[in-house]
Design a protein around this nucleic acid. Structure first.
Lengths: 348, 348
DNA sequence: TTGTAGGCGTTATCAT
DNA sequence: ATGATAACGCCTACAA
């Protein structure tokens, strides 16, 4: 249990040179099959693993991605980052990449941290999540020539094609959710979302609007069905109650987040269906249908774009989410809490 | 943006030798102040950062911790790992340590992944979370002589002092929660927890029992107040309804998790106070009091024990949690959802 | 206090 | 197809 074996140990044991061992690992094609197998057997026997730092020093590539981990602030949807990280790490492993975490208190601090990671050649690329309008980090990274991919499109819109990004088509997802409710023979589907200006929130609202217009609802009828509020339970509940007063015979509610969906669910007391967004485990617990972002798909695209391969700078991917339908049915408030976990259907 | 500056570049620019630059960084005490400042100025000017891999290769220390990130399974308490990771990363940065993630599908897979990380000298120590009774990972790591710290005590109990661990005193926390309710002039405080055998669950139940016995409740009265069920909303709601039937004049409920607390909250419809465990953002959203694990404190202890410093192998820390009291008051189901976010009080 | 020399484990280059 | 040599950037003796 003393020293870890090195290429040299393997070379000696196999009766070849260090270089041949290296070739077996990195360019197996150019080494004679017999030699290759012999070396491989020795590697197995000795339990040899290349020393990651030595390799990084030599190749000048760290094979490492850095992701910022945020303190969880959102009431309910906070676990999205968690799931994304899991998917990212899982797939990165297959590609021989490592995922390291960092934290930052504010953009300035983040810039400092990034500079440190970059300066130490510790990181090949950054993965930015929760990008906002006019995010200072993207500008800085572009300036610094640092490779990065964002999960979230550039909402500022001007430098659309200056970097690589992956995002989820929230508009499409909410449209899907709305159409699902409309397809159930209902007509008046309300929407509870965030105040205008948040980019992703506007997109989701647009998805609802599109579906409603396509179904023939317009003008004041449409306006009356939409409400906006902050992303927490109290605000959501208040907004939904206002909505119910305005449109007492409402048939269903689509929410911009699972937080708002749970709020709506509590208020409508299970009388009408509610669909959320993010497909968090909380939504699942309550038996609510929700739009699933397909974080695993997002992660795989992020990795592809973050890789050294020659994807053009402006490459971006818009992932189509899917709707996870849960059968709550009408019933008491928090019906999911007093009935067995409902079956799930996944669409499309 | 071509090459990153090296210690050599700094040395040349400052008119000193490489070694002096290295000393300025690692042993500033032994270099003359004038020289030191001059070198530091050059470092600043050139934006020099030590090459992390080169340093790791030379020092044979990776300054890196590995943590497994789990797929989120728990309905509601899943965000605990998230918060812990954030605290761990934040504090690791201050100590010059990196946190890398890994995933594993099962213990065998995890062993393989760990072996790979260790073999590559990529990781100095592992941080294990969600340890279970007779966890195969600890045995393997001990066997392999790999440094590690667990967040979670060794429930098997036999090799208590063979490795370092940090855990939260759940018994104490639940006792605190129970006493809080009892202090409010109430007498019949129920407990909804997990079936016997889960270690942490048994501890939490014991905390409730202790507080109740100290308050004079014993025998059948005590037995009637406790229920056990799986950790999900449906099971929790069913268990709490059974509890209500058995003890209709119950004064309050303490739950072994926030998931069960939310279930209880839904069932008791805000008529009596409910206290959860984990202080997740979901509990906060619903305005429920909850036992807070002080993950930041846990993280700092974990880092201390994981460090190279000479803490004895059996060192362990039992963190005393605190109770976060939220003022829900009686009212409608999910009152938190329809009233402003309540004020928080933190005890002790 | 500062400088010199050597090597950590790997891979790229150039011979053979 | 394989082997020798050098270099990646840093740190730690040891020498001056």
């Amino acid at each position: 249990m003393g020293q870890l074996p090195t290429v040299n140990d393997v070379a000696v044991a196999a009766g070849v040179s260090r270089q041949t061992v290296s070739n077996v690992l990195n360019s197996p094609g150019i080494v004679r099959p017999a030699t290759r197998e012999r070396v491989r057997a020795v590697i197995e026997t000795l339990g040899y693993r290349p020393h990651a730092s030595a390799r990084r020093l030599r190749t000048r590539r760290s094979a490492t991605l850095a992701v910022r981990i945020d303190p969880m602030v959102n009431g309910i949807s906070g676990s999205v980052l968690d799931s994304f990280l899991h998917a990212l790490t899982q797939q990165a492993e297959r590609l021989g990449l490592r995922v390291v975490l960092y934290t930052a208190t504010d953009p300035d601090d983040e810039t400092r941290v990034i500079r440190r990671l970059v300066g130490g050649s510790d990181v090949d690329a950054f993965v930015l999540t929760s990008t906002v309008r006019g995010d200072p980090r993207t500008a800085w990274l572009l300036e610094a020539g640092q490779p990065f991919v964002t999960f979230g499109r550039p909402w500022g819109s001007e430098h659309d094609d200056r970097y690589r990004w992956v995002d989820v088509d929230g508009r499409w997802g909410v449209r899907l959710a709305t159409e699902h409710l409309l397809g159930g023979g209902t007509a008046r589907v309300g929407f509870v979302g965030w105040p205008e200006g948040s980019g992703s929130g506007d997109e989701r609202r647009a998805g609802w609007r599109e579906a409603m217009v396509a179904a023939g609802t317009t003008g004041d009828d449409l306006e009356a069905l939409g409400v906006a509020c902050a992303d927490d339970l109290a605000a959501g509940a208040a907004a939904v109650r206002a909505l119910l007063r305005r449109v007492p015979d409402i048939d269903g509610v689509v929410a911009a987040s699972d937080t708002l969906a749970v709020a709506a669910h509590a208020v409508v007391a299970g009388r009408i269906p509610v669909v959320g967004f993010d497909n968090t485990s909380v939504a699942a617990s309550f038996g609510l249908s929700s739009v699933d972002q397909r974080l695993s798909t997002v992660a795989s695209h992020v990795l592809r774009l973050a890789g050294p391969a020659g994807t053009p700078a402006g490459t971006h991917v818009l992932v189509k989410p899917r709707l996870v339908v849960r059968a709550v049915g009408e019933g008491a408030v928090l019906r999911a809490a007093i009935s067995p976990r409902p079956a799930e259907t996944i669409r499309p």
